[in-house]
Design a protein around this nucleic acid. Structure first.
Lengths: 343, 343
DNA sequence: ATGAAAGCGCTAACAA
DNA sequence: TTGTTAGCGCTTTCAT
């Protein structure tokens, strides 16, 4: 059985004995329409179950009522939350949200951006997989496509952005470690989120040197933002002769991975290793002890992104960069150094 | 600055000095096209950066290369995972996935289904918010829209579905409680997912009576599938004079809520209360003790849904119901009853 | 092998 | 106030 033919303006125009133009006017409530005519049309529409064809409308107007969202990974609770907020903020504007994850791959990001572009979406909200490989995003802006970048920066893309103070957050975390007596402080960060990672790395280096501590290559590990990859990175880090006594991870998936790795190595938190994670998450309060985190104002990011996108769509003013502060939430995963790792 | 005019077939036809028809043929590789002409067209397309207009194509063919997905809540890790898998399974077919959450509201489900419908999506994958209020889904099927229902059943909708053996899973969980000596076994389930909940409830009742135990109203609580709502439900349950000694929850968000509630009441797992959750999740292995769960083969659900949807799209055979088995993963959250709740 | 032309469903400029 | 008409970009007969 093939799809039934949907009812069109023509159908309801015929039913209401008016022209298609009049029917369209009555349906969309613009221009001059006689009261009784309007009623007749509305009735016919209701009776026949007229639904309108957004594709035809979009072709006519050159734009789909859709906003594209390109997260790094929809399974990351951070992005799932943002997607949820975006959807909610967009609904009153009668736009749909189309989510197409880049899976943290720059090739796939190019692909999905292109795909969204060919759909004539109204605008794009992207968490760039790379900070440097941004040609496709620049092209977007040059073509006049409204674009807002979130969570991460992208070099030389003249568009609005919503990010958090990664550097300050990392600095605060490191200072907290130092004030607890730690000297060998490790960092696991995510290469793909280059700028974000670079900023958090920057804060790390900054704080360390600020406290007169050396920055050791061997204490800085790179991992993908997945639980599995982070487990490996953490195991490498803590298998060294003089392992770190403290660890900062840059997102919640990585914090989860670190936790699993430490447990598998028989290292207890915070007795053997102190831990701070970037980005607060459910899990953080379920572990024993609970995890100290650098939290981001995640609830505000989606709303702000939509606001900035709307400004872009209506052409209001210049691109605008929003940067939210972070907050160190102290729980129980940081202690004094000195526990002996058991083998 | 407004959007630049994208290049159209007409542009490349002009550039290659052929008609639009020929250009289209060369671009899409069908019909007869001279070899040299084809090359000229391809070159022109590449040079001008032709991208095609999926909206116009869709209008022409009556369908958008999009599959709609309506989860109950994209923030639920279960659905986030499914969305991820769906996206991956769809990509090779050159279809995009459009996610529009129902937020577990039947009104919103109707709204987003309608919205997706007016976009002429190729097919729909829905986790119905209600098992009984299914008129809009039935209408969809009658109109010939390919539809696959996942996770939950919906009464009287003649379409394919992918679900798990909720009843068997619940039965197995309850039997495990009973074999550990429990007699007062509580259930918190989700009213909105009526059939799923009913099935899990069915398994609960079945197992209880099978073991010669009475089914007590006061041990069955209804909650929404959110952490907050479940906390309240659990507190009500365990504030009774003779509180339950064991608890089964029907999804991971609810398990999380139960855990938080028990902790806030000073009840320890499994000393005071034994706990089993439906649906395995990260958190389950981070708590101390780890949580025993009824796991679903989540990795297979998305792939199977896409397969069934494709069958529907190509009109292959009749609608088909897939039901996956569950598996009880025994960890440490079930003990013998007899601990005294502390106040 | 190629071109001319129609039309998907809709909206809006223009006419009446 | 309403109708006529053109055309968004594309594909696909049908003719050449």
């Amino acid at each position: 059985m093939s799809q039934k033919k949907p009812v069109t303006v023509r159908d309801i125009a015929d039913a209401a004995k008016v022209s298609r133009a009049t029917a369209a006017r009555a349906l969309n409530g613009y221009g001059y329409v006689g009261d009784d005519t309007a009623v007749r049309v509305q009735e016919a529409a209701a009776r026949l179950g007229y639904r309108g064809n957004r594709v035809a409308q979009a072709l006519r107007q050159g734009q789909m009522p859709i906003v594209g969202f390109v997260p790094g990974d929809i399974q990351n609770p951070f992005f799932a939350r943002i997607a949820h907020d975006l959807d909610g903020a967009l609904r009153p504007t009668r736009h749909s949200l189309m989510i197409a994850s880049s899976e943290e791959s720059i090739e796939q990001e190019r692909e999905v951006v292109d795909s969204l572009r060919s759909l004539n979406v109204r605008g794009l909200i992207v968490a760039p997989a790379s900070a440097d490989d941004t040609g496709h995003l620049v092209a977007l802006v040059n073509e006049g496509v409204p674009l807002v970048i979130i969570d991460r920066m992208a070099r030389d893309v003249p568009c609005s952005s919503v990010t958090v103070d990664n550097e300050g957050g990392a600095r605060e975390a490191i200072s907290y470690f130092v004030s607890n007596g730690h000297r060998r402080i490790a960092l696991i960060h995510d290469d793909s989120r280059i700028v974000t990672a670079r900023e958090r790395l920057g804060g790390y280096v900054d704080a360390l040197t600020g406290h007169g501590l050396a920055v050791e290559e061997r204490l800085i590990a790179v991992s993908q933002s997945t639980v599995e990859s982070t487990i490996e990175a953490a195991i490498r880090l803590f298998s060294q002769p003089e392992p770190p006594t403290a660890l900062l991870t840059v997102d919640s998936l990585m914090t989860t991975g670190a936790l699993l790795a430490l447990r598998s190595m028989g290292l207890s938190v915070p007795h053997d290793v102190s831990l701070i994670g970037f980005d607060d998450f459910d899990l953080a309060t379920f572990t024993d002890p609970q995890i100290t985190v650098v939290s981001q104002p995640v609830a505000r990011i989606g709303a702000q992104a939509v606001k900035l996108l709307q400004d872009r769509i209506t052409g209001t003013g210049e691109p605008e960069a929003t940067r939210f502060p972070t907050r160190l939430i102290i729980r129980g995963s940081v202690g004094k150094p000195g526990g002996q790792p058991r083998r």
